[in-house]
C-alpha cells in the first residue's frame, strides 16, 4: 500500500516581525498572538523563485530520509504561484534543477490550502496506476509574490514555505480515502486580481467555520470512527481564529487540534505537511486527521494511519 514515508520542510531564513507589522495597522500584540497566531511571517528572498523553495525542500527530504534523488520517479508541485507565469510548469523546472533523470512524471497541481490533501490522493492514485515507486509531493506557494503590503486583511496572515513528502509502498503512514469538495460560487472571496491577492476575510472565515466541521464529521462517520479515535487533528493553519472556530465544533477533542503557526504564518498548502513533520513521529500518535481548506473554495480531509 502506498503511503507517506517522510516529510521535510524548507523555511526561508528571512521573516517579518508580525507584531511590528500589526502595530503599523493599529492591531495589538494580543490580537496578533491570539487571533492571527503568528508573530513571525517567513519570507523568501527576492531572488528566490518558487522552484528554488521546492528544490530546497526536496534536498532537505533526501538529506533527512533514505530517499536518493535518482530514485524519484514522480514529482508533483502544488502551487498557484509558480515560476514565471506558470508556463512551463514549475515541476519541470524543479526536475531540471535537481538533476533528476528524464523518466520522471512531473506536473503541477493548481490548488491552494486544500492542495496537500488533494495532492496525496492524486499522487497515490498515479503511483498505484502506473507502478511508479517513489513519488514526491511538493507544496510551494509563496504568497509574498502577490501580497499587497498595504492590505491589512492579507498582509498579517501569510508566510512562505515549501515542503516535500515522500510517498512509496510499505510506508509508515497509510493514506485514507479522502473527502474532497468544491464550492466555486465562493471563488471571488479569495483570489488574485491584477497581480494582487484579495480576500473577503469574513466569508473565508465563515466558509472554514461552517463547511469544514461537517466534512470532518462525515469523514469520521465514513470511517466508522469517533472524534476521540483521532490522536491529532492537523488542520490548515489559516489563522489562530480559524483553527479555534473549527475546533470549537469538536468540544470533546478540542485540545487535539494543533495550532502551530507562530513562527511561519499561514503557508497555504504547506501548513498541513509542516504540522505532520512535527507531530507524526510523536509517541502515541497513530491516527491523524488532516484537513485543508481555502482558495476555490475548496476543502479536503483525510485520515492517516500508522502501520503497526
Amino acid at each position: 500500500m502506498i503511503g507517506i514515508n517522510s516529510i521535510a520542510v524548507y523555511l526561508p531564513t528571512e521573516s517579518i516581525d508580525n507584531v511590528e507589522q500589526g502595530a503599523a495597522f493599529g492591531e495589538t500584540e494580543d490580537f496578533i498572538r491570539r487571533k492571527i497566531g503568528a508573530t513571525k511571517l517567513t519570507r523568501k528572498a527576492e531572488t528566490q523563485e518558487t522552484s528554488d523553495l521546492a528544490v530546497a525542500a526536496v534536498e532537505a527530504l533526501t538529506a533527512s530520509s533514505g530517499l536518493r534523488a535518482d530514485q524519484i520517479d514522480a514529482l508533483v508541485v502544488v502551487t498557484q504561484n509558480p515560476d514565471g507565469s506558470g508556463l512551463p510548469h514549475t515541476a519541470a523546472i524543479v526536475q531540471s534543477k535537481l538533476g533528476l533523470n528524464e523518466n520522471v512524471a512531473a506536473f503541477d497541481v493548481s490548488l491552494g490550502c486544500s492542495g496537500f490533501v488533494y495532492g496525496l490522493s492524486i499522487l497515490k492514485g498515479l503511483m498505484r496506476e502506473t507502478g511508479l515507486e517513489n513519488g514526491v509531493l511538493i507544496t510551494a506557494d509563496p504568497y509574498s509574490k502577490v501580497l499587497d503590503p498595504e492590505d491589512r486583511v492579507t498582509s498579517l496572515l501569510f508566510g512562505d514555505a515549501a515542503t516535500a513528502t515522500w510517498l512509496s509502498a510499505d510506508a509508515a503512514w497509510q493514506i485514507g480515502k479522502p473527502l474532497l469538495a468544491t464550492d466555486g460560487s465562493g471563488a471571488d472571496n479569495l483570489r488574485v486580481c491584477g497581480g494582487r491577492l484579495e480576500m473577503n476575510g469574513r466569508q473565508v472565515f465563515n466558509f472554514a467555520a461552517l463547511r469544514v466541521p461537517p466534512q470532518i464529521n462525515a469523514l469520521l462517520q465514513a470511517e466508522n470512527l469517533d472524534p476521540e479515535d483521532i490522536d491529532v487533528y492537523c488542520i490548515h493553519q489559516g489563522s489562530a481564529a480559524i483553527v479555534d472556530a473549527v475546533s470549537r465544533r469538536f468540544r470533546t477533542v478540542k485540545d487535539r487540534f494543533i495550532l502551530d503557526m507562530d513562527e511561519t504564518g499561514n503557508t497555504v498548502s504547506s501548513t498541513v505537511p509542516i504540522l505532520l513533520s512535527r507531530f507524526m513521529d510523536k509517541p502515541g500518535v497513530s491516527r491523524i486527521l488532516i484537513s485543508g481548506f481555502g482558495v476555490g473554495l475548496s476543502w479536503a480531509s483525510s485520515i492517516l494511519t500508522k502501520r503497526t
Binding site: K35, G201, R202, F205, N206, A209, L210, S239, A241, A245
Partner: peptide, 19 residues
C-alpha cells in the same frame, strides 16, 4: 474585535440557517 464579531454571526447562522 472584528474576528469575535465574525464568530458571533457564525453562531447566529448555525442557529437560524440565515446568512
Amino acid at each position: 474585535d472584528s474576528l469575535d464579531i465574525y464568530n458571533v454571526f457564525v453562531e447566529l447562522e448555525v442557529l437560524t440557517g440565515i446568512q
